[in-house]
Design a protein around this nucleic acid. Sequence first.
DNA 1: AGCATATAGTAAGCAAGCCAACGGTTGCGA
DNA 2: TCGCAACCGTTGGCTTGCTTACTATATGCT
Lengths: 155, 155
Amino acid sequence: MIIHEDDKGLGFLLGDAARLLRKVIDRRLQPFGLTRAQWAVLAMLASRDGLSQSELADELEIEKSTVGRLIDHVEASGLVERRPMANDRRFWHVHLTEQARPLITQVTEVILATRTEMLKGLTAEQQGRLGDGLAVVKSNLSAALEAATQLPRPS
Amino acid sequence: MIIHEDDKGLGFLLGDAARLLRKVIDRRLQPFGLTRAQWAVLAMLASRDGLSQSELADELEIEKSTVGRLIDHVEASGLVERRPMANDRRFWHVHLTEQARPLITQVTEVILATRTEMLKGLTAEQQGRLGDGLAVVKSNLSAALEAATQLPRPS
DNA sequence: AGCATATAGTAAGCAAGCCAACGGTTGCGA
DNA sequence: TCGCAACCGTTGGCTTGCTTACTATATGCT
């Protein structure tokens, strides 16, 4: 009765699901001129406007060079604005523009609809367990990454 | 007690976990001169040698243009060979080379070790439920993608 | 004061996805 | 038989991601 797609392994399953999700969202956001990655930036700023690029990189867990390019795009689209900081000229605060607000409310609906569609057929409890499981996996992988990075073993 | 990383939503969680997994595997496969995507090709050929590129694209669920470039890489590494098909000169069969075999057994161990590491702290039943949940999500997303694609409704 | 170090952001290069468009083969139908 | 449709693979262009290296600015230590 259970689906048990074990042929390809959980790792591939995880990658496939994530890739599919990106594909679906990219398509649905195309009419808005956005991609999934750009939306992640906007969504973060919607709740915490004025973050610096490095803070954004930390929150989104991607590299700062990637964040820089993403902001180039959304800034070119006029959705975001880099404002210099007075006391420290090294970094910028990234702010949403006026025209971003209405677009964000629209896109949020699309995203939420997609999420419920993606979780169709799962009970609330199953969804919770899925989230818990993914969180465990994520923290295991973070640990593995750090362990691999610090080659100098602390003995 | 439960981790419940719901702030960013299940979609982001899924993407984050998948991105981390790719990062970890890419690092661990770097000594072998492989990436995660190239490994996917080799793993598929290991069980079904001689597939065509289109068949590979179907199995791996990625575009044929992506498959073509992946094969360019692994072919340049000497792990794979494009053999013309006699009766139909349109396509090639992709075959593993001799030197690929031992490498595949080595890499398989790394991959399996990473999988168990990624699932550390989850019981077998939890792992099963995680896989089932992901499979449901994946099939929901596939359906969403197809629905979006076929604009001409068959009425 | 002055130099070393750390930090914010940028730039260049590569891999992997996608899409769209093209060229070469095959095969079917008029 | 001829031509058109379908199919396989390639190419080019775009976005995102990582890595590494670089510039500019701050800060801290001597």
